[in-house]
Simulated scan of single mutants.
Amino acid sequence: MRIEVLVDVKTILGEGPLWDVESERLFWIDSKGANIFRTTHRGTEVRAWDLPAMIGSLAIRKRGDGAVVALSDGFHFLDFATGEVALINNPEPGMPTNRLNDGKVDKCGRFIVGSMDTLEAGANGSLYRLDPDLTVHKLEDNIIVSNGPCWSPDGGTFYFCDSWSREIWAYDYDLVTGSISEKRTFATVDTVNGAADGATVDAEGCLWSAQVYDGKLVRYTPDGKVERVIEMPVKKVSSVMFGGPNLDVLYVTSMAKPPLPRNPHDGIQRGSLFAIYDLGIKGVPESRFAA
């Protein structure tokens, strides 16, 4: 195994790595900097888009050349060619201390996104589903910081966490309706200063969790047991995603500056996009938003 800096752009709050298998490009975001970045698997041809508000996550669209983005003020379409954004729906009007955060697309092309309290204090957040017909449905509430949505390889189990709950949850996921049920604790996060952040599932059904402020990536088996821990060069790791032409490279985002004054000191590689090679493990292709 080897860990390398793929792109050093010093993202303030790097998040949401997303490998698009159709374009063979890696996307990631700077939530606080309000940017989307794109690169090749080699870290070349870097492109960036500026956004009008903080971004929590994005999904590539099946139709046209663009994405659906979860901004602080709701769901929007982004046109890659022009950089223009258009509002779809704001599910939380009148909640100025909240913003949309982490999100992913299920196998049927629905965008599942959670919101968070920007002060990371009150359970004001919720989990939403944006359907391809652009309707929004609330799936869960009473969340402080929504993070880590992802699915088992067959799509039947949904994983999700409230970062400060010290737990990662599993739900039964209905691929026909997009509903969740049977919430249970998948894993308890063993940390003193850290928290579960972004996550992904590999082809073997194991869940990878970035444990922010601890500088660790933890791989859990499908029954919730810790299989391995990878120590990263920086503490503020935020999210993970398998990608590359063979889906065998693990990409890791990080923060140059935390949104709140927790563990402010980190190495000179803070804010970098990392790539981990030679793990001998492959990921699962991510779906596009079906609109």
Score class of each variant (00 low, 15 high):
residue 2 R to D: 14
residue 6 L to Q: 05
residue 8 D to C: 07
residue 10 K to E: 11
residue 16 G to E: 14
residue 25 R to A: 13
residue 37 F to V: 02
residue 37 F to C: 12
residue 38 R to T: 12
residue 39 T to R: 00
residue 45 E to C: 06
residue 47 R to Q: 15
residue 53 A to C: 10
residue 55 I to G: 09
residue 58 L to R: 03
residue 60 I to P: 01
residue 71 L to K: 03
residue 77 F to D: 11
residue 79 D to H: 15
residue 82 T to F: 05
residue 103 G to E: 03
residue 106 D to A: 05
residue 109 G to Q: 05
residue 112 I to A: 08
residue 115 S to W: 08
residue 120 E to M: 14
residue 134 L to T: 11
residue 138 K to C: 07
residue 143 I to V: 15
residue 144 I to M: 04
residue 156 G to Q: 13
residue 156 G to L: 08
residue 161 C to P: 00
residue 167 E to I: 09
residue 171 Y to D: 09
residue 174 D to Y: 01
residue 176 V to L: 11
residue 178 G to L: 01
residue 181 S to I: 05
residue 184 R to F: 04
residue 186 F to D: 08
residue 188 T to Y: 01
residue 197 D to G: 04
residue 197 D to C: 05
residue 197 D to H: 13
residue 199 A to W: 01
residue 206 C to S: 13
residue 212 V to D: 02
residue 217 L to R: 06
residue 224 G to P: 06
residue 224 G to L: 07
residue 225 K to S: 15
residue 232 M to H: 04
residue 233 P to L: 00
residue 235 K to T: 06
residue 236 K to M: 09
residue 240 V to E: 09
residue 246 N to W: 14
residue 247 L to A: 04
residue 250 L to D: 07
residue 252 V to C: 10
residue 275 A to Y: 03
residue 280 G to L: 01
residue 291 A to W: 15
residue 291 A to E: 14
